[in-house]
């Protein structure tokens, strides 16, 4: 079974050891997905699999067979950027830019998780609808490390996009 990556069908690699991350970066040259630790600790490799955020370094490529993968390259383009991409620029939600694709992909899926009512560690009332608060965003984005310290800008960008959606 093929893997659908940004709308294109791709054959799964022959070598079952190949991670989804290495398939993307080394074989398909989709290098927007980054490698920061290769052990699920930093979030730089975050991509969307069937719309949910996944650490591609901890996912074997063969696990994605029959599924739909969206990387940063598929999330937006130069002509039609994703609102999060524009908001990250506006709020300076990055410096070196290395964790950025992972942050953007994680944020896109994270907002859908909140919309779907999935609670988090900081959700006070588990029976009420979950609100997009600064605290919720900070908690839910904590799996995506940033060493340059762009955290404030990242959270501001996400909150702005969330507010735009709600409006």
């Amino acid at each position: 079974m093929a893997i659908r990556i940004n709308g294109t069908e791709v054959a799964a690699p022959d070598d079952v050891r190949v991670s989804l991350l290495d398939l993307l970066r080394e074989r398909l040259h989709l290098t927007g997905t980054k490698v920061g630790c290769n052990q699920g600790a930093c979030g730089a490799c975050t991509v969307l699999v069937d719309g949910e955020r996944v650490l591609s370094c901890l996912t074997l490529a063969v696990q994605a067979e029959g599924r739909s993968v969206t990387t940063i390259e598929g999330l937006g383009s130069a002509d039609s950027p994703h609102p999060l991409q524009l908001a990250f620029i506006e709020h300076d939600g990055f410096q070196c830019g290395y964790c950025t694709p992972g942050q953007v992909c994680a944020a896109a899926a994270m907002l859908r998780e909140i919309e779907a009512g999935v609670p988090s560690y900081v959700t006070a009332d588990l029976t009420a609808p979950v609100l997009v608060t600064r605290e919720e965003v900070r908690e839910r984005m904590s799996g995506n490390l940033c060493r340059c310290g762009a955290h404030n800008g990242i959270v501001d960008a996400i909150l702005e996009v969330a507010a735009g959606r709600a409006a």
Partner: peptide
């Protein structure tokens, strides 16, 4: 001013050392 390289970075188009084909 926003960063010159911002659009390339948010689109994942900025090529780092391990990304040169």
């Amino acid at each position: 001013a926003s960063r010159q390289d911002g659009p390339a970075k948010v689109r994942g188009e900025a090529r780092f050392a391990a990304e040169v084909a």
